[in-house]
């Protein structure tokens, strides 16, 4: 990537082009209409074209003007934090709040450099209890504490 003069502009421009093209493609099956009677794809098509144009300008500019490089991404933190969120979503209904919360805490805690098993387990226990008391008993949210998996 050393050839890129302005990587952050280059990639954001490319992202705009890709996003614009995606919306443009998805608009194809919809009616465009006329200005007097705008169809469902009228506004999205206009916006997509503007977005693609902006994206191309940004990419073009990135090839001419120099810019700062992109700092390395914290991929481990990214993976663990997003993974823990998805896990919560998967577990919360059938596994229940306690299981989902504990899983979220333990997996996300592993993203820290100062991760320790014992503190993670302790945090999971504290937070799961706290959420059960505050959200389910206190605020009365209708989330099962223990899900269907453990029910029957």
């Amino acid at each position: 990537m050393k050839a890129l003069r302005n990587p952050s502009d280059f990639w954001s421009g490319l992202l705009f082009v890709v996003a614009g093209s995606l919306f443009l493609t998805l608009s194809r099956g919809l009616e465009f209409g006329t200005p007097t009677r705008m169809g469902p794809s009228f506004f999205p098509v206009v916006l997509s074209i503007i977005l693609i144009a902006i994206g191309l300008l940004v990419v073009g500019r990135s090839l001419v003007l120099h810019g700062e490089p992109i700092e390395g991404a914290a991929l481990k933190a990214l993976a663990l934090v997003t993974g823990s969120g998805v896990l919560f979503g998967l577990l919360v209904r059938d596994g229940g709040l306690i299981l989902a919360t504990s899983a979220l805490v333990i997996v996300s805690a592993a993203a820290s450099r100062r991760f320790h098993w014992l503190t993670a387990l302790a945090m999971a226990a504290v937070l799961a209890t706290f959420c059960a008391v505050v959200f389910v008993w206190g605020l009365g949210l209708s989330i099962p504490l223990v899900g269907a998996w453990f029910g029957e």
Partner: peptide
């Protein structure tokens, strides 16, 4: 490192 898992829990429960 002791805070953010809790923040995540509140975000997740709030959104859910």
């Amino acid at each position: 490192h002791l805070l953010y898992p809790g923040i995540l829990v509140f975000c997740a429960i709030g959104v859910f």
